Structures are given as structure tokens and as C-alpha cells.
Computed example of a mutant assay.
Amino acid sequence: MTNTVKTTWKGNMKFESTNPSGLNLNIDTGAEHGGNGEGYRPKALMLSALAGCSGLDVVSLLKKMRAEVDDFNIDITAELTEEHPKFYKEVHVVYNFYGTDLKKDKIEKAVNLSIDRYCGVMEMFRQFAEITTEINYFEK
């Protein structure tokens, strides 16, 4: 399977990028780098892709396992290298689950399947960064 995007310069530091979904997104820098802050920052967008990829896996697996949660979010903190080209060297992914009577064994299994088997973006990150993960439960 091949994915194709087209990214077009829109002036100054802004670009518009297509997506196979048909939805476009804007990429820009902040004023400190000459942009207008009218779009996603490229490196932060990579972290969103990581969270989205793993999150989709987890939600799909929890549904199949009949392990309902009231809410779920993923927080990612990443450290860049000091030297150019700067890239993420350490990435910490935190999975937060909220609900009543959470099925922790199934949640842990779903998260681990995403991390170890299904999330292609996670595997891409492993090629250049040390990845750590944790799971937090918030029961009502």
C-alpha cells in the first residue's frame, strides 16, 4: 500500500498538505521562526501521528474485548537532540483511562498489543528514539 500526500507552499512559512482522507492540514512555524502560527508544527505533528495511531489500535481492541472506558487520552512528551538536524531521541507515551470498574488486564493487553504489534508509527519511532510507556487508571 502506498500513501501519497502533496504539500504546497502557501507563502511565507506556511504549507498546505493533502491527506488520503481528503482532509487537508496546514503546516506553519511560530513567529519566532518567521511564520504566523497558522498551522501544525511538523515535529509536534509526528507526535500526534504516534498518539493517533496507537489510540486507534487501543480503542479498536478494547471494543473487541468488550472493555468499556468512559474516556481515554494519550499524553506524549518528547526530547529533541541538541544538534541539527534535531530529532526526537526520547519519547514517553502515557495512556490515561477513565471510568468505573476498569478492566485493567484487558486495557493493558490492548495497549501492549498496540505498542508491540500493531502501531506502525510506533515502530517507525523505534528506529530513531528510545520509547517508554506507562498506563494510568482514573476510576470514579
Rank of each mutant, 00 (worst) to 15 (best):
residue 124 M to L: 13
residue 88 Y to F: 15
residue 62 L to W: 00
residue 45 L to D: 05
residue 95 Y to V: 11
residue 35 G to V: 01
residue 56 L to N: 12
residue 108 E to T: 04
residue 49 A to D: 04
residue 14 K to C: 04
residue 120 G to F: 04
residue 20 P to H: 06
residue 139 E to V: 13
residue 138 F to V: 12
residue 98 Y to D: 00
residue 17 S to F: 01
residue 87 F to H: 15
residue 134 E to A: 12
residue 6 K to R: 08
residue 114 S to E: 03
residue 95 Y to W: 02
residue 27 I to N: 03
residue 27 I to W: 03
residue 33 H to S: 11
residue 92 H to D: 04
residue 103 K to Q: 08
residue 125 F to A: 09
residue 137 Y to H: 00
residue 57 D to P: 05
residue 119 C to H: 01
residue 128 F to G: 13
residue 45 L to W: 09
residue 76 I to C: 05
residue 113 L to G: 05
residue 119 C to N: 10
residue 62 L to P: 08
residue 58 V to L: 09
residue 21 S to D: 14
residue 112 N to G: 07
residue 49 A to W: 04
residue 129 A to L: 06
residue 132 T to W: 06
residue 33 H to M: 15
residue 32 E to M: 11
residue 34 G to R: 11
residue 32 E to L: 12
residue 13 M to T: 07
residue 71 D to S: 07
residue 33 H to I: 06
residue 75 D to G: 15
residue 81 T to P: 02
residue 31 A to K: 06
residue 90 E to G: 13
residue 104 K to I: 04
residue 6 K to S: 07
residue 13 M to K: 13
residue 4 T to R: 15
residue 36 N to Q: 14
residue 6 K to Q: 04
residue 105 D to H: 04
residue 133 T to F: 06
residue 10 K to G: 07
residue 119 C to T: 05
residue 7 T to R: 01
residue 80 L to N: 13
residue 110 A to D: 00
residue 118 Y to M: 04
residue 47 L to W: 05
residue 136 N to E: 11
residue 120 G to C: 11
residue 91 V to L: 07
residue 36 N to P: 10
residue 80 L to G: 06
residue 92 H to V: 00
residue 52 G to D: 14
residue 88 Y to D: 03
residue 103 K to E: 15
residue 113 L to R: 01
residue 97 F to N: 03
residue 39 G to D: 02
residue 83 E to W: 12
residue 43 K to M: 14
residue 32 E to V: 06
residue 115 I to V: 12
residue 26 N to G: 05
residue 138 F to C: 10
residue 29 T to K: 06
residue 137 Y to W: 07
residue 74 I to M: 02
residue 56 L to I: 10
residue 42 P to Y: 03
residue 19 N to R: 10
residue 75 D to W: 01
residue 17 S to T: 11
residue 126 R to W: 14
residue 104 K to W: 01
residue 91 V to H: 00
residue 104 K to C: 02
residue 52 G to I: 09
residue 15 F to V: 03
residue 72 F to W: 00
residue 126 R to V: 09
residue 117 R to G: 02
residue 24 N to M: 08
residue 51 A to Y: 02
residue 121 V to C: 13
residue 131 I to C: 08
residue 127 Q to V: 06
residue 5 V to T: 15
residue 122 M to R: 08
residue 18 T to S: 10
residue 42 P to H: 09
residue 67 A to Y: 03
residue 130 E to V: 13
residue 50 L to R: 09
residue 114 S to H: 08
residue 89 K to N: 12
residue 80 L to V: 15
residue 126 R to C: 10
residue 61 L to W: 03
residue 52 G to N: 11
residue 117 R to Y: 13
residue 133 T to H: 11
residue 109 K to S: 01
